[in-house]
Design a protein around this nucleic acid. Structure first.
Lengths: 204, 204, 204, 204
DNA sequence: TATGAATGAGTCTTCATTCAT
DNA sequence: AATGAATGAAGACTCATTCAT
C-alpha cells in the first residue's frame, strides 16, 4: 500500500479521480462489489490500473468515495435537487411529486440500493455513512415540516414511517414484479396513509 | 467425469447435507457470499472440503439450497410457525404479536436479509425464489383476512403496504441505530396506521 | 496404501478382479489415463470404489495389469489368434491376411494405441512391457520365417521394417483422414515393398 | 509519448510469451500434459503464475500455441529448414541427409512425439493441426519430387509410405531399445526400400 | 505522473486413496 | 469381503496490488 495517496489539487487530476470514482461506483452498484474488478474500473474510467492506486488506497476506498459522492442519489433522492415548497392545502400534489421524484432517481440508481444496503452489515464505514445520512434527512424533512407549521408531535417517528412507506412503494413500482398489483391504487393508498399519519399535526 | 451429486437417502447422509447447508447458509448470511469460502463452510459443518462437493454442485448451490430451506425464516418470518387467530375485536394484540414474532425471527437471521436481498439483482434464482415467496405470503395473508370476514377491497395492495410498514419498523427496532427515536411510539403509530388502512374492510 | 493386496484365488474374486481390469483398461484406452477416474472404473466394473484397492495397489496398477492382459491385442494383433501358415508361393495372400487381421484388431482397440504409446516415455513399466513384447514378436516372426525356409539375412531388421510398414498402413486405413489417398493402391504398394524386402531371402 | 518508445515494451511482451510457450511446451512434451502444472511452467519460464494467464486463456492454450510454433520440429522435421536439393544421381546422399536431419530434430523433441500423438484422439484441435500439417507436408514433398522430374504415379501414397518408413527407422535409432539390431543395416535397407518405391517414377 | 506488465496469495474444485460400518 | 462416505492434498485460475519503465 502506498503511503502517499494523493489528494489531487489540479483540475486535471481532480477530474481523473472523479472519473474513477464515478466509473467504479457505477460498476459496483450495477454488478456488485465482488463482481467488479479494478481492471474494469480503470478501463471504464479510461485510465491505467496503476493510476487508480495513486488516488485510492484500495478498491474499497473507491466504494466509500463513491458512496459519499453519489450515495444521496441512491438512498435519499427525495430531497436531492428538490425545492420542497409545501402547500398545506395540497398535500396530495406534494406527496405525488415526492414519490415521482423518488422513483425517477431510483430508476437511475437501479440495483445500487440493495447492493449497497447489503454492505451496511458487513461494513462499518458503509453503515456509518448510511445511518448518518438517514438521520440528516429525517431531521431535514422534520425541519421543513415544522417551518411549515406542523406540530412536533412524534414527528421523527412519523417522518421515518413516511419515508419507509414511500421507499417501499417506489421499490414495488420500479421493479414491478407483481403483475396482480395495481400501482395507482397503491400510490393513492400510501398518500392517504401518510396524510392520516399527519392529520393531527397540521396547524390551521 | 462422473457428475453424480448424491441425493442422500440415508439418515446420516441427510443430516450431513443439512449440516453443510446450515453452516454454509449461516456463514453466507453473516459474512456475505464472497466473504465465505468453501473451506470455512466445511470446517463450520465439521466435514472435509471434499465432501461438500458430493452433496452440492458448487458453492452457489449451497446458497440456493439454504435459501429454499431457511429463506422463509429470514424474509417471511411473520407467517412462519404462527397460527394467526384473528380476533377482530383485538387487532392491536394481533398486530403486536405479528410484529414481535417478526422481530424475534429477524433478530435470529441477523444480517441475512440485506445480504441475500442484494443478490436478487445479480442472481436469477435468488430473485425467482424471492418474488415467488413474496407473492405466496401476500396471498396467504389476504386469504386469512378474507376468511376472517374482511372485504376484498384492494386487499393485495393493502397487505403489501402493511408488510412494508412492519418490515420497516422491525428493521428499525432491530438495528436500533437512531437514538433519538422512540420505538414504542413508532410501533403504536404503525399499528394505528395499519388499522386505518383496513378500517373500511372489516365487516360487522 | 494397503499392505495387503489380495491375489484372488477364488473364482468369484478372480472374476471381479478381471472385471475391474477390463473396465479400467477399456476406459483408460478410450479416454486416457488422466481422463479416467477410479470412480468411473468402479462403476463400469460394477463394484464399489473401495474394493478396487483390495485388488490393486493404485490406479496405475490397473493400467499395468490391463496392459499385460490386453496389451497384445493392441500392439501386436497380427500374431494373435492367427495361425500363420506361410505359403511361399502366395505371399500376397499371406500379407493381405496379416494386414486385414491387424486392421480388424486395431479397430477394436481404437485409440488405445497412442494413448498407451505416449506412456512409454513417461513410464518405465509401460516401456519395459512394450519393448519386451516387441522383441518377442519380432523374434517369433523371424522364427516362423526361418522355419519356412527364409535365409537369416538381416532378418531382424527386415521384420522390423515390415512391421513398421504394416503398422503405418493400418493406421492410415483405420483413421482414414486423408481423403485424397487411395488405400487399395497403398496396400498393394506396401505388399510389394515387403516382398521386395525379402526377395533374396526366399530359398527355392 | 512516441509510439517508438512503446515498441520495446511490446517486444519484451512477445519475448515473454514465447518464453512461456517454449517452457510450457517443452515440459508438456517431456512429462506429459497432465504431469505438468502451471506453476512449473511459470517457474521454468521465469515468470509468475499470474502472468501466464495474461498471455494464455488456459493451460490447454499453451499446448496449442506450442504445437503451432514447435509442432513442425517434432512431427515434420525432415522438411524444416532444409533446402532439399534433389540430385537424382545421388538419392542415397539425399535420403541419408533427410534421415539424419530427422533424427537430429527428433532427438531434440524427445518424447514429444507420442505424447502429442496421444492427444490426437482425445483432442480435436490437436488432431486438426496434425492432419492438416501431415497433408501439407506430403503435398510439399510430392511437389518437390515432381518439380525434380518424378512422374506422378501414385505419388501421394508413395510419399506417405516413405515418410512412415523414415519415421519408424528414426524412432528405432533414437530410442535404441533393441540391442540385437544393427541400425546401419536397417538404415540402408530403408533407403533401398525407398529407392525401390520410386524406381519407376524417375524420368530419364 | 502514468502505464500496464508482473506478482503471488487465495479460491474453487477434483480425485486417488482410506476408513468406518 | 464389500460398501461408499470421507479425506485432504493438489491444481487451474483470478485479481487486488505493486513496480519497472
Amino acid at each position: 500500500m502506498l503511503d502517499t495517496i494523493r489528494e489531487p489539487k489540479q483540475k486535471r487530476a481532480i477530474e481523473k479521480k472523479e472519473k474513477i470514482t464515478k466509473a467504479g461506483f457505477d460498476l459496483i452498484c450495477k454488478n456488485g462489489y465482488y463482481n467488479t474488478n479494478t481492471a474494469e474500473i480503470a478501463k471504464a474510467a479510461g485510465v491505467s490500473t496503476g493510476i487508480v492506486y495513486q488516488y485510492f488506497k484500495d478498491k474499497y476506498d473507491i466504494l466509500i468515495e463513491g458512496l459519499e459522492k453519489y450515495g444521496d442519489d441512491i438512498f435519499f433522492p427525495m430531497i436531492k435537487d428538490n425545492n420542497i415548497e409545501i402547500d398545506i392545502n395540497d398535500l396530495n400534489t406534494l406527496l405525488n411529486n415526492m414519490i415521482n421524484n423518488y422513483i425517477k432517481n431510483h430508476k437511475i440508481s437501479n440495483v445500487a440500493h440493495e447492493e449497497i444496503m447489503s454492505m451496511i452489515h458487513s461494513d462499518k464505514k458503509v453503515a456509518e455513512y448510511y445511518y448518518k445520512r438517514e438521520l440528516e434527512m429525517t431531521n431535514s424533512i422534520k425541519d421543513i415540516l415544522i417551518s411549515n407549521g406542523f406540530k412536533d408531535n412524534n414527528l421523527s417517528e412519523k417522518v421515518h414511517i413516511m419515508l419507509g412507506l414511500i421507499d417501499n412503494l417506489c421499490h414495488e413500482v420500479i421493479y414491478h414484479k407483481h403483475d396482480h398489483m395495481n400501482y395507482d391504487i397503491m400510490t393513492n393508498l400510501v398518500i392517504d396513509n401518510i396524510k392520516e399519519l399527519f392529520k393531527d399535526d397540521i396547524n390551521n
